[in-house]
Design a protein around this nucleic acid. Structure first.
Lengths: 243, 243
DNA sequence: CGGGCCTTTGAACACGTTCAACCCATGTGG
DNA sequence: CCACATGGGTTGAACGTGTTCAAAGGCCCG
């Protein structure tokens, strides 16, 4: 194993106030004064290149990461070495919450060249005491992560392939929509294999689903560019109310 | 729907100091003085009879619940009305963390007559400011819940029935062991159907698995009483290292 | 004894997997 | 320039795990 040679991007101080994600991210709902206090503890920005790890299972926990831009995947590995992708994360979302118990319990890898803000947790804890609104929002984020995962269990546990895939697409759509992007077009950042892994399906099944959705006229598919033509249909599939 | 007539058990003040679960539950690791402070905010004990809801999806969030004795299941319901059990909880475990974001996102139902402590969240938040160790432990609990769920995704997403079932049994075993019970015998508190639902299998599959494990001499099965005869085998199955 | 519920067992089926071949775009070296 | 390798994706055919449907067994409690 030879570490790839790469030049670290200059590490710039991050600023929540100036960040386009501040309405979705950790400072959500804070007043200007409190955002400033948060800014003071937010650490450096860190570039993470495609396929690079942001953290690995077993790494000691020091900080959370807020995604400035780019995309990540997190995955669990079982004792037989097989992995299960547990989520895809995009700008404005927080990474590393699985590690608050002491060390990281999953791996996080960049799907494309990305940038995160490092949030030293010890300093964040200090700030919690001074900014109760921040603590409250942090608890909401943790709670939402728990609920998000329960919804993944829901589709892994009792939906058929078609329904899982529809839920997956709609979930991505709505997250991009919340970030101001089109709510009918999207560019997948992950490979078919990664989608399949996440959905508990094989790459072939995902490929067949895409082909079928396309041939039914529900989607336009061009490599990783997806356009939804029949949103109602997709929603009906996701809801399980279409036969 | 007629609400069942039942006499509410007298609501007693809960006491962490006197509770046998205090080493596993919210007060874990706190000094006596801090446990006393926690005691002051812990609300009443509440009896929840078998099949009764502790909370329902959509209920406003006011408090967390610590299980004193008994067992619960939590489940998600999709728009088609199908449900997915997302976890089984036992004494010393916390319920309601999915709701911190505002309202409950799943249902919690008692598997047997049980008792919980009500922990008013607003008062807990006040206490966080005064007892940092409590806040830190609370964050650990939330984080562990996230990791637990990721492990459920792992088996729902890429294990075969046999392996899922082995993982399920071993998980129960270890949790009972942590509570001082036998690490080879256990009494299932949930029906075959509930196990199947949790594992993403049908009741028939669960029944066949039990029969097979029994006939292979790995388990003794008598209704809901399970005794493990070949622990090594079970662990190998769970790890996926047995062919 | 009878009814209800949970569980077990059997047989046919179906969904998604597995295995294999092929496509296509990209990049590399002669 | 072509030959070739590579990685991601698609397609087809056979297979297998777990489901579905159906029936029967066991147990509790009235």
């Amino acid at each position: 194993m030879i570490a790839p040679i790469m030049i670290d991007a200059p590490k710039l101080k991050a600023s929540c106030g100036a960040c386009s994600m501040h309405a979705l991210c950790l400072p959500m709902g804070l007043g200007d004064a409190d955002v400033d206090r948060l800014d003071m503890i937010i650490g450096l920005r860190r570039r993470v290149f495609r396929d690079q790890h942001l953290y690995r299972r077993g790494d000691p926990f020091r900080q959370l990461y807020a995604i400035r831009f780019g995309h990540f995947k997190t995955y669990q590995v079982n004792s037989a070495g097989e992995s299960q992708i547990t989520g895809f994360q995009m700008a404005g979302e927080l990474l590393g919450m699985d590690a608050i118990s002491g060390s990281h319990h999953c791996d996080a890898v960049a799907l494309e060249d990305s940038e995160v803000c490092e949030i030293p947790f010890a300093r964040l804890e200090e700030l919690f005491a001074e900014v109760p609104a921040l603590l409250r929002h942090f608890h909401r984020i943790l709670s939402q992560e728990i609920t998000r995962e329960q919804n993944v269990m829901l589709f892994l546990g009792n939906m058929r392939a078609e329904q899982r895939f529809a839920v997956f697409l709609l979930n991505l759509m709505s997250r991009y929509a919340a970030r101001g992007y089109s709510s009918t077009c999207l560019q997948l950042r992950m490979s078919r294999e990664e989608i399949g892994n996440y959905l508990g399906l094989t790459i072939e099944s995902v490929s067949r689903l895409l082909t079928r959705f396309k041939s039914q006229g529900w989607l336009i598919v061009d490599k990783r560019d997806i356009t939804v033509l029949d949103m109602a249909r997709l929603k009906a599939l996701a809801a399980g109310t279409s036969g």
